Amino acid sequence: MSTTYHKIRADKKLLIITIIALVAVIGGSGFGIYKLSTNPPPSPTGDVNHDGKVDDLDTRKSEEKSSGRSTNPVKPPADQKPQIYDLRIDNRYLHDFPGEVFGISIPSGKSQVTEPFEIYSQGIDISKCTIKETVVHDYPDNKKETIVLKAISLQNVVLYDGYNTITVSCPSSAGTIEQSLRIPLTDGLPEACRNFAFTDSAVTANNYDDLKNGVIGLWAGCVTTPWVPKYYVTMTLMPYGIYSAVSNEVMDFSEANAMYYGSEADNPYKQYSIKDFQSNRTGTGEIDITWDATSSQTSRGSLKNIKLMGNKLSFEFFHFHQYGPVTFQLYRQ
């Protein structure tokens, strides 16, 4: 009886701890919308030993096998017809979508990574294949280039920030066989805001009315958060306390959200107000986030350190008065 009683208490304690942890995770995210996930977690680059050097391919395969990284050996198909039955990069077999593999990111300070690429086939002479890598660079101008690779079944390939697609086309007794593997690669760096410059200057608002009236207008600049790379926004602060904010930027295959939280759709319930003027001539206030174009449901947050500097404006936004800061640095347009 005593053992059962203590087991029930332990189970209840575990349940309570789990619920608290879930609430903390949900609250901390604030259901923030960054229209994709944030960047994929860092993953091993081209060397098993993580020493910054790409290993000899034979050595790499041996070390991967001994370390258990070859988690799903490729099995030839049961039929004997000519075919390419798998393409692998860094020996990854889990494709999030057919013909696509995620999870490889560029280490900080690098512009590319080198990974082993392997073709698994039967009834095909790989030496007669055409193997090409097409790269659509993510920054700065989506430039596209094609790289001809060696006609061998295993080789190191260089992958760049953006979409990397390796296409294998081979003649066979069954006709031309072609298969592709796309590898999206992310570097987690700002793009439109990569070279953005903003420095504070003399405050130009001398009183509450100066600040309230001075912020009205169209602004554009960059937003910094604790969670994602800096991104570009445009924001309109209207005289009757309604605002509009949008970001048209796509970084690492993700659409940025101007306020980080909520919907970018215009809504008459997207309202802001400056509540107080501080002795240091900055302001504080509140702002309402909406979640679609029509609903009156809002989530209120704080505006802090509202600083007007002529044709420059900066302020900090805290979702639910606690999650942030989401820092805006804007120039008047």
Score class of each variant (00 low, 15 high):
211 L>K: 00
61 K>S: 12
120 Y>W: 08
124 I>K: 00
47 D>W: 06
157 V>M: 06
244 S>M: 11
72 N>S: 12
282 T>L: 06
56 D>A: 06
267 N>K: 00
136 V>K: 08
187 D>Y: 04
25 V>N: 11
49 N>F: 14
226 P>H: 01
311 N>D: 15
206 N>Y: 10
130 T>F: 02
216 I>P: 04
222 C>S: 05
251 M>A: 12
270 K>E: 08
89 I>Q: 04
42 P>T: 06
278 Q>A: 12
151 A>T: 05
72 N>A: 12
219 W>V: 02
71 T>H: 10
265 A>G: 02
69 R>T: 14
271 Q>M: 10
280 N>M: 00
129 C>V: 05
275 K>H: 11
286 E>V: 12
35 K>C: 13
176 T>E: 15
27 G>D: 13
17 I>G: 09
167 T>A: 09
300 R>P: 03
302 S>V: 02
277 F>E: 01
146 T>D: 07
287 I>F: 03
9 R>N: 13
210 D>Y: 03
280 N>V: 02
116 P>H: 05
107 P>R: 00
143 K>A: 12
16 I>M: 14
274 I>D: 03
4 T>V: 13
259 M>K: 04
31 F>E: 13
283 G>D: 07
251 M>C: 11
205 A>Q: 06
312 K>V: 07
53 K>G: 07
56 D>W: 12
306 I>V: 12
162 G>L: 11
184 P>W: 03
259 M>G: 08
91 N>Q: 10
18 T>L: 15
240 Y>T: 15
224 T>M: 07
53 K>Y: 15
326 V>I: 13
85 Y>F: 11
118 E>M: 08
80 Q>V: 09
149 L>I: 01
58 D>H: 02
131 I>C: 02
240 Y>I: 14
269 Y>N: 12
119 I>D: 02
168 V>T: 09
